[in-house]
Write a protein that binds this DNA or RNA. Structure first.
Lengths: 211, 211
DNA sequence: GTTTGTGAAACGATTCACAGCT
DNA sequence: AGCTGTGAATCGTTTCACAAAC
C-alpha cells in the first residue's frame, strides 16, 4: 500500500465519527457529498481518501454506512482497545487522565507516573499515581501500547528514551520540544501555546488582508 | 503581502522559541542551518520561511539573534499580551486555566465560564468561575481578544455564535466538532482523541511497512 | 439520473542550486 | 570562504471532470 498523507488519515477519522452517528440513527447509505459537508471538505476529497484503501461504495447509490464504518475502524486500527500510560501528573496530565474522549474512542489510560513525591500515591480516576522511577518495573509487568507525555520540556527527551527502551512505539507528546526518536517510533506533538500563536498571527494579519 | 501557509507560521513560532533561548544565552548571530536543526527542518526552509516577510540576515554571517527575534514577535503578533476567556470549566478547561505555558507566551486567561451551577463561584487560579449566562454581560464590560472553547460538543456551536456576536475574532476549540464561523473569524480546532487515532493508524500500518 | 472511482490538471509547499553579498 | 535570498525544479495534495456502474 502506498504512503498515505497524515491529512488523509485525519479526515478518515472525522468521517468515521460521522458514520458512527449515522449508524446510530440507522441510516443505510451515505454519499460522499453528505460526508464531505459534515467533515468540512469536498465530495471528491472524500472519494479520493477512501480510494487509497479500496472501493467501498456503489455508483449511483453511495456508501453502505455500517460496512464503511467497519472498514474505517479496520484501516485506522480501531477494532481493538489500546493501553495508554500517562507520564506527568501535572495540570494537563491530570485533566487527560480524566478525559472521557480517550476511553470513548478506545484508549484506556492504565497507568499514571510522576516524579513529584507529593503526587505519588494519590488516586486519580481509580488509578494510583506511580513514581516515574518505577516506570520500567511497572511497564514490563503491564505493557502498554502508547504513552502520553505531559512532563516539563526539560525531561521529555529523557523519559522518551526510557519509553523507547521499553519498546513503546507511539507517543503523544504535550511537552513543547521536538523529540528525537528512531524511525520505527511514531510521535505526535501537540503544542498548546503554539496553537494560540497561530491565532495571534491571524489576528495581526486579518485587518491587513481586509484592505 | 502574499498569503503565508499555516505550516510556515508554525515554524516561525518554533524558530522564535529557539531564538529566545539564544538571546538568553547572549548569542549574537545564528545561521539558517542552526535554526533548522533545532526546529527539525532544513536551512533552505528556514530561509524561505523568513523571506516571506523580509531579508533579516547578512550573507556570509547569518541572522542577528535579537533583531530576528524581535521581527518574529512583530510578525506573529506577539509584541502585546492577549486577553483570553475560557468557556467550559471541565477537566480540560480547568487544566488550561492553570497552564503556565499560555501566560508565558503572552496569553492571559482573564475569565472562566461554565454552565454547571456547582462550578460557578469556585475560585480557580485567582479567577471566579462565572455562569455562562453572564457571558455577554461580562465580555461587554471586559472585552477579550480570544476565546478557548472547552465545552461539550453539543453546545460548542451555540457558544461560538454568542462569542461571534460579541465580536470575538479568534477561537481555540477543543470540542470535537467543526465550527461554522464567518470568514473574518479564525478558529483552530484541537481534537485530542483524533491525535491518538493518528497514532493508532501508524501502529496498525507500521509493521506492514517494514515488510 | 445519480454517484462512485480515478486519471489528468491545477495548485501549493518543499527542496535544489547558485548568484550575490559580506 | 561562508551564508543568505530566491528563481527554478521537484514533490505532494487537492480539485476537476468524466467514464463506468447502478
Amino acid at each position: 500500500m502506498r504512503r498515505v498523507a497524515e491529512s488523509t488519515v485525519r479526515r478518515l477519522s472525522v468521517y468515521l465519527r460521522h458514520l458512527e452517528e449515522f449508524e446510530h440513527q440507522g441510516l443505510g447509505t451515505v454519499s460522499s457529498g453528505a460526508l464531505a459537508s459534515l467533515g468540512g471538505t469536498t465530495s471528491a476529497q472524500v472519494r479520493k481518501d477512501l480510494s487509497f484503501f479500496g472501493s467501498f461504495g456503489k455508483r449511483g447509490l453511495g456508501y453502505p454506512v455500517p460496512e464503511l464504518a467497519e472498514q474505517l475502524r479496520e484501516i485506522l486500527g480501531l477494532k481493538r482497545r489500546y493501553r495508554v500510560a500517562l507520564v506527568g501528573a501535572g495540570k494537563i496530565g491530570s485533566a487527560l487522565a480524566q478525559y472521557r474522549g480517550f476511553r470513548q474512542r478506545g484508549f484506556d489510560i492504565v497507568a499514571i507516573f510522576d516524579a513529584d513525591a507529593s503526587k505519588v500515591g494519590h488516586q486519580w480516576n481509580g488509578l494510583t499515581v506511580l513514581d516515574v522511577a518505577a516506570l520500567e518495573e511497572e511497564l514490563v509487568r503491564h505493557p502498554i501500547d502508547m504513552a502520553v507525555l505531559v512532563t516539563p520540556a526539560e525531561v521529555a527527551q529523557a523519559v522518551t528514551n526510557r519509553l523507547i527502551q521499553l519498546g513503546v512505539k507511539a507517543i503523544l507528546n504535550f511537552a513543547p520540544v521536538q523529540l528525537a526518536v528512531p524511525d520505527d517510533v511514531v510521535v505526535k506533538t501537540v503544542n498548546l501555546a503554539l496553537e494560540l500563536e497561530t491565532l495571534s498571527y491571524a489576528l495581526a494579519h486579518r485587518s491587513a488582508e481586509a484592505s
